[in-house]
Design a binder for these strands. Structure first.
Length: 343
RNA sequence: GUGAGCGUAGCUCAGUUGGUUAGAGCACCAGGUUGUGGCCCUGGGGGUCGUGGGUUCAAUUCCCAUCGCUCACCCCA
């Protein structure tokens, strides 16, 4: 028997009403915040993701579905959609038509990881990208839109985490500071963290191992070394969130796994979905458009996992779906007479 | 890629300290009953016990391998 590929799932008629419900809410919400839908191909040239997301990231180095087509072009099934949207933005000169583009998308993504609760190889994300403004108010709007959607689904067990990674120079400078701090403590770190010391020093903050955590507790924080602009922007984001009543936590250890982020990053996690708790993640990427060959254009965006969100809804029993029932059922009484239908 | 747990009927699961024809509920099929195709009654079909090998007189049960599922690690939505 031929079975579905590992990590892929059929969405059956019994479950489809949940998806329709979610999709309807998404379209209504994005329309309310004045976002336009964009649909880009589910596969792109491999180079787009390698350059956009970063060669050294886990996504690019070990999770992509990459293959050669019949003309020997290296193709990759999109593992996320920011790179694709930015590619389209550049290729179609969307920035030349209006200075600010507010876009959203809904669709399948692909990553070849080991499946587990809340993780699939083909999964669905919705997300938004705003291209053409450096305003931190839009960073906050991203969080507001995502939070609004999750709240509207009745989810309760949510935490909004925010951080700022600053501009690249600041981050490089900070890495040196962190390296100095850890230099003489390095031998006490776990093996994993010693490896990270060389490859991606910021990730040592993520370690769950106790020895690492005690060492990192007193480590200097990136957030204390931010440039003036990043610091001010971060304040604006926090003030805006407070003003619109969205509770948040500043998490200096929030380092996202994609290379393109600058300044604000954020995540919304749920306690209702098992180990893979991030429902939504995003941040600002002011250098990506230029990096991919377009005219320098600032951007900010987020993506959210739809299976994870529906799983959280399921576990919290937060969805009140209308009963799936028929409205009218016609039965023939006389089988001899042909059925006549008049309006 | 690493680790742990689990693979028995279409579905949910019993069961076997190794021993005759492997069970239940639901679903399905047929008949009965009935002014619905519902309820009820009777009967029936359906399983290479994930796959391959090993140990044994004998394996669904024990051992090994393999595949699949689930959860966790890494990382992420």
């Amino acid at each position: 028997m031929i079975k579905a590929i590992t990590g892929t799932k059929d969405i059956l008629p019994v479950d489809i009403s949940k998806w329709h419900y979610l999709e309807k809410l998404l379209r209504e919400t994005f329309q309310f915040f004045n976002y336009k839908e964009i649909r880009t191909p589910i596969f792109e040239e491999t180079a787009l993701f390698a350059r956009g997301i970063g060669e050294e990231t886990d996504i690019v180095s070990k999770e992509m579905y990459t293959f050669k087509d019949r003309s020997e072009t290296s193709i990759t099934l999109r593992p996320e959609n920011t790179a694709g949207v930015v590619r389209s933005f550049i290729e179609q000169s969307l920035g030349a038509q209006q200075s600010l583009n507010k876009l959203y998308y809904i669709g399948p993504m692909f990553r070849q990881e080991r499946p587990q609760a809340g993780r699939l190889r083909q999964f669905h994300q919705f997300g938004a990208e705003v291209l053409g403004s450096t305003s931190p108010l839009l960073d906050a709007e991203m969080i507001q839109v995502a939070y609004h959607i999750l709240k509207n689904l009745g989810l309760k067990n949510l935490v909004v985490k925010i951080n700022s990674l600053g501009i690249p120079e600041v981050r490089e400078n900070y890495k040196n500071i962190l390296r100095d701090y850890l230099k003489d403590k390095k031998d006490n770190l776990s093996e994993e963290s010693r490896k990270r010391f060389e490859t991606n020093i910021l990730r040592i903050f993520d370690s769950k191992i106790e020895v690492d955590q005690t060492i990192m507790k007193n480590a200097p924080l990136l957030i204390d070394y931010l440039d003036e602009e990043s610091k001010n922007d971060f304040e604006v984001v926090k003030n805006y969130l407070a003003k619109v009543g969205i509770p948040f936590e500043v998490d200096p250890a929030l380092v996202r796994g994609l290379d393109y982020y600058t300044k604000t990053t954020f995540e919304i996690v749920s306690g209702s979905v098992g180990a893979q708790s991030a429902l939504c993640g995003g941040g600002r990427y002011d250098l990506l458009v230029e990096e991919l060959g377009g005219k320098a254009t600032p951007g900010v965006g987020f993506a959210a996992g739809m299976e994870r969100i529906l799983l959280a809804c399921e576990n919290e029993k937060s969805l009140n779906l209308p009963q799936d029932s028929i409205d009218v059922y016609l039965i023939r009484v006389d089988s001899k007479e042909p059925l006549k239908c008049e309006s």
